[in-house]
Design a protein around this nucleic acid. Sequence first.
DNA 1: GAGTAAGATGAACTTCGGTTCACTATCTAT
DNA 2: ATAGATAGTGAACCGAAGTTCATCTTACTC
Lengths: 195, 195
Amino acid sequence: MAQTRAPRADAVRNRKKILDAAREQITLHGPDAGMDEIAAAAGVAVGTLYRHFPTKTDLVAAVVAEYTTHVAEAAEAARERLASGSRAVDEISDFLAHVTEATATNHAVKAAARTLGADPVDRDAEARAGAALAALIQAGQADGDIHQDVTVDDIYLLFSTAPTDQPPAARARWLSLVLTGLTTHTRTANAKPAS
Amino acid sequence: MAQTRAPRADAVRNRKKILDAAREQITLHGPDAGMDEIAAAAGVAVGTLYRHFPTKTDLVAAVVAEYTTHVAEAAEAARERLASGSRAVDEISDFLAHVTEATATNHAVKAAARTLGADPVDRDAEARAGAALAALIQAGQADGDIHQDVTVDDIYLLFSTAPTDQPPAARARWLSLVLTGLTTHTRTANAKPAS
DNA sequence: GAGTAAGATGAACTTCGGTTCACTATCTAT
DNA sequence: ATAGATAGTGAACCGAAGTTCATCTTACTC
């Protein structure tokens, strides 16, 4: 049952070009980025775009999936680092800072995803991220740095609303305020974690 | 220079009907709510709608303005209550809970405002809300309930991203988490303020 | 190096929703 | 009661953006 033969080389190349262009254009011009614009940016005709992604919704979903995978990998990397003796709170702080940044960049992309139908998020990647995050939280609680009642859902809840269209300074402040609610540290301690 | 004579009675009536219908339809069907739909819901023809609001953006802006005014009034009412001996933290908590609720309801409206051009927010109402909020924060800090470094901008920053499409329980949890970052209280104290 | 299936092209089509405007109805000042 | 401005009506207009498809190209197979 090995029927579907390998995709053509140029098809693979184009798929990547389209995905990159889509991310870039949507980030730049918001959900209003037209299929024509994206195609042009990718150096491809509209028809090609539709061969790879039958609908605009599918295209955006694919872009979001890339992002989700990225977050999952970051979470798992943070957990790995625990083995090297790093402190869980610090890893969580860094991870969340990273996610906040990434989310800010992908602001428009996620907005576009909402505008169309919020879609089949990559369940697998989401699960991996959740597992890694749970381990980090547990470690942090064992250290006495994270409030006992904090759950993975809390993190999701807070970061699903991370400010995206604010300047970097505001985003940093937001992160600081939110972390105060999760950790047992005072605000200054958050800003300058023991090195 | 008293030239513009009083608007006709039916015009005033229709304006209100349109505003109500717009809020309702946008809340219901999101930013996609068509001008035709809104007009129909208001029991009016499209043309009438355009007489009152030359563009869809203007219409949405007007709806948002109503909301802003509402928030400003709530903030001022909270400040008034300080005179009656109520505690500032509690007033702030209640106010923020109220805003979170109101924002959840107006979720789609604000989304619509973004989709079109984020607009001339009612500067006056915003200023009034800011002044009232500043007074509340100051009082809370004097009581020792609110962290010294908290500012009005912090509140704006946090609540500009209040979760809107989450179920009530999640919104309550979110509020609790965020308040922990603002007050000197522990989480349980927030949930059950001294009566 | 043919032959052929997979892929690419882009002009044209369709849909959809905001907006217009010539016309009619209604209110209000005299 | 009447005039005339003010407001309301809704079919038609228009442009934008997603999507299709008949045709041409190109990469892989034997």
